[in-house]
Design a protein around this nucleic acid. Sequence first.
DNA 1: AATGCAAATGCAAATCGTTTGCAATAAAAA
DNA 2: TTTTTATTGCAAACGATTTGCATTTGCATT
Lengths: 143, 143
Amino acid sequence: MTKNATGRVDHEAELRKAGIRITRPRRIILRIVSETDDHPDAYEIFRRAVQEDKNISLSTVYRTMKLLEEHGTIQRHAFAGGPSRFEHAGEEHHDHLIDVETGDVIEFRSDKIEKLQDEIARELGYDILHHKLELYGRKRRSA
Amino acid sequence: MTKNATGRVDHEAELRKAGIRITRPRRIILRIVSETDDHPDAYEIFRRAVQEDKNISLSTVYRTMKLLEEHGTIQRHAFAGGPSRFEHAGEEHHDHLIDVETGDVIEFRSDKIEKLQDEIARELGYDILHHKLELYGRKRRSA
DNA sequence: AATGCAAATGCAAATCGTTTGCAATAAAAA
DNA sequence: TTTTTATTGCAAACGATTTGCATTTGCATT
């Protein structure tokens, strides 16, 4: 995997290698998604992008998200109700707990659950390629 | 839980008990969702309903799905991209294994996973309202 | 550095799934 | 049967996303 001077994955090089043009909007969007650690939706990415270049369009954000998704740079989450939300892919796998009241997304990981899933799939005669586990919950009020 | 003459859950009685009027459209929609064993979307339910009553409207289908969801009669699945799809909420909860090659949906259930989810949520300070676990897999070729 | 051209952009309009306002209708209560 | 009130159908509004098209841009080539 191509890295840049800072040791991080160099998405521009990766994409260029795949024959994709690095344009000004793409560079900006790429920076936004690789620097954030939350799960912004397209409009939120657009809002941030506009601060760096007044005439980036929302269409371009959508088109770029689709492109980056296809190239595995980001991951799309379709949480119930709202718009798709995106996350910079590549770290290790984790699942999500969604706060139904605030929309907050909390990441977590459980090796036990991962292992159980494999077992279940094996029993059913399948190999798991990927999976999605979303818990929808409400913050517990301390008694 | 109220049952009717055939021994199945009597949704009409359940809803009436909750102060909800049983109208002609609702009766038809209720029958459709409780008789099917696939996961139709609102438009598909509408299409089936129209065959029984020419002037049922799509709005009524949407309104009824929301109503039934709130009363726990049905469950809503929000897949990425497409429309919400509904499923008659039977007695026991189950999760889904999706065959990525054929699109087949296999239902399964694991008490261990259910319990683990509760534990995790509790550790994070949340109460789970509902969850979604989808395994995407490929049928294992026997060696 | 200047050129050519396909790919990418911005904009507005279109599309898709879903919700809503409102006048007409029908369910249940009286 | 009349009254009360929820529910309906319709069309228009809605939010999220996609698309057609004329213009601009990246970038490979001179």
